[in-house]
Amino acid sequence: MSENGAEKKTAKTQRTAVALRKQLGGAPHEVLKRNKEQNRLRRTIVDAMRQGSATVPEIAETTKLPSHQVLWHLMAMKKYGEVVEGDQQGDYFKYVLVQKQEKAK
């Protein structure tokens, strides 16, 4: 690593986000609450998908979540490589969880 690169790395460890959080007395309550709820929904969807591939209505039925929310989270997971699209079943596509080992490759 060059000298400049080393300086950058040192600067990086200062973590301005953490410093700002301390200065503000914590992250905004609303953001924390929203994120907690999103994580709960995401976990519910992931748990339902562990059984195998499923369509949006199937996941919505298993999880009792509204189908639009299931789709929104699935598409976010697809975008960031956590889910892939499978075969089409009638009017719907199936979605499959990407295994962690596979992701690591």
């Binding site: 301005t16 986000a17 700002l20 953001v31």
Partner: peptide, 22 residues
């Protein structure tokens, strides 16, 4: 920033250290 948790994970990952919350 309106939706940021200020967790600092982005800063930890950024190779050139480009993130500056100040």
């Amino acid at each position: 920033l309106d939706n940021c948790l200020l967790c600092g994970r982005c800063e930890k990952e950024c190779p050139p250290g480009a993130i500056d919350f100040f």
